[in-house]
Design a protein around this nucleic acid. Structure first.
Length: 481
DNA sequence: CCTGGAGTTGTCCTA
DNA sequence: TTAGGACAACTCCAG
């Protein structure tokens, strides 16, 4: 037992040292050691919405975090079990007088944290929580009537105004030195994903703070890629490296949104690309506050009218969508990218979400769940927001008649078909003129390019024009009821 | 309380 | 070939 009072920092979705408000505060306040604690929670690991990719990425990020802590003379303490019991044990073992963490806004996390906070206060242990995962928190951006915004544009105006009025936000946090945790304190080894029952062959990004920061740096100072300055123009083309690819790092807090904002500020907020990219940070915050204030969105439509849509929910079609065999090349390319990389380009996410809901007439919640089970960056708030937007059931709903045409989208955003050919090798030799609609090739042409549509690659499983009409009717009926 | 402008990322038909 | 209007009406939000 140490003599000086120890403090626990509970790492959750903030797997980094830099710009970590709760960890920095704990380090500054503590007169003893800061005990860096991470808990492997079976409730999370065994959820039906967990993806193997996220587990792999998270474990890698934990290894990186442990290495960084060791470089500072400390180490990461890992426990496996219920957070409540694990924290209580570590307090017993360290005589800790306080616990620090960064806030998490999902319903599950809030419930968990409330219970733990009560338990700690009951034991006379101080609890300090900090804002970290967002730029502006739940109650910081409200309308004139003190109600949460439910439309993005006015929200974003307010969000930006506050960023410009509060340059302090952009100051870099300085991490003080760390005292070693007591030698006697035990820690589980960071397991391999396989030991937790997760396996994947996917090509995943490397986890960790250092990789995340390097990637941010590359994006902001891009030489051979569009980077932040080309973001506005390039981000919609899935074959191009036009996006930052930072989503998994933000998801696990390997980098902080504050760090991103500072980088964008250095690149110049007035720059079009930078401005557009910062808007994506505002979208993150927007959907976190939507989920916080309207937690029912995880179960139902934001707009209750649309709970009445009578979906087809055809399971054969759903399987074809998941596996990338719908016969629409852009949809199949995107779904196969998801399978191969546990990640999908944002434009492609919109296209496949529109296709699932408006062409296959399948409940958006099926797609939402599948995305969570696959994505390396899967986040309840953003994923739900994106799906409800695409389905037209959510905040800022697009007009219900605005239905993506998978062929037009393909021609517009993958004109040469490079994205399609990369993920759908059957179509390798199909020219740009037929890559979006390979079923239009004559038998003769199919022979020439070595493919038989209907055998080597499916015919379209639905007719877009027909399904579009049906979707319009279904939505109209739900509204009328 | 009323008023008016506006609403992430589209598509299709017609002239 | 291309440009423009229709596609609905509703709710949100600020003044």
């Amino acid at each position: 037992m140490s003599i000086m009072p120890n403090i626990i920092h509970w790492f959750r979705r903030d797997l980094r040292l830099a710009d970590n408000p709760a960890f920095t505060a704990a380090s500054q306040v503590s007169q003893g050691a800061v005990v860096p604690l991470f808990i492997l929670d079976d409730n999370v690991l065994q959820s039906s919405r967990t993806s193997a990719a996220r587990v792999v990425f998270m474990l890698e990020s934990l290894r990186a975090l442990d290495a960084s802590l060791r470089a500072h003379g400390s180490r990461l303490i890992i426990r496996h079990g219920s957070p409540e019991q694990c924290i209580a044990q570590v307090i017993d073992e360290t005589d800790a007088v306080g616990v620090y963490w960064n806030r998490d806004y999902s319903p599950f996390a809030r419930q968990r944290d409330t219970i733990i906070e009560k338990m700690l206060r009951g034991r006379g242990v101080d609890v300090h929580t900090h804002k970290d995962a967002v730029i502006w928190e739940i109650d910081e951006i409200l309308t004139k009537n003190n109600t949460p915004y439910t439309v993005y544009t006015p929200y974003a105006r307010q969000w930006r105004a506050r960023v410009e009025a509060n340059p302090v936000l952009l100051a870099e946090a300085v991490l003080p030195g760390l005292q070693p945790v007591p030698d006697t304190l035990s820690s589980s080894a960071i397991p391999l994903a396989a030991e937790l029952g997760f396996a994947t062959q996917q090509l995943l990004p490397s986890g960790g703070e250092q990789v995340g920061l390097e990637q941010l740096n590359t994006f902001v100072h891009a030489q051979n890629a569009p980077g932040i300055h080309g973001y506005a123009e390039q981000r919609n083309f899935p074959a191009k490296p036009g996006t930052s690819r930072l989503s998994p790092y933000l998801r696990f807090g390997c980098i902080a949104p504050q760090t991103c904002l500072r980088a964008a500020h250095k690149a110049g907020f007035q720059q079009h690309g930078s401005e557009t990219w910062v808007g994506e940070l505002a979208w993150r915050d927007f959907y976190y506050q939507i989920l916080y204030h309207f937690p029912h969105v995880l179960q139902r439509s934001f707009k209750s009218d649309y709970d009445k849509i009578e979906w087809d929910n055809n399971e054969v079609f759903f399987a074809a969508w998941c596996e990338g065999r719908t016969g629409y090349p852009i949809v199949d390319a995107a779904m196969r990218q998801l399978t191969a990389e546990a990640w999908m380009h944002n434009r492609a996410r919109m296209i496949v979400a529109s296709f699932l809901t408006k062409d296959l007439l399948i409940d958006w919640r099926w797609g939402e769940r599948y995305f969570m089970q696959q994505l390396v960056d899967g986040d309840h708030a953003s994923n739900n927001g994106g799906w409800q937007w695409a389905a037209g059931t959510g905040t800022d709903a697009q007009p219900y008649f605005r239905i993506f045409n998978p062929i037009s989208q393909s021609e517009k955003f993958d004109l040469q078909g490079d994205y399609i050919r990369h993920y759908v090798p059957e179509l390798q030799h199909v020219s740009a003129s037929y890559i979006h609609t390979p079923w239009n090739m004559s038998q003769e042409l199919q022979r020439q390019v070595g493919i038989h549509i209907g055998r080597d690659y499916p015919m379209p499983i639905v007719d877009h024009a027909m399904q579009r009409q049906r979707a319009l009717e279904l939505y109209k009926r739900a509204r009328a009821e």
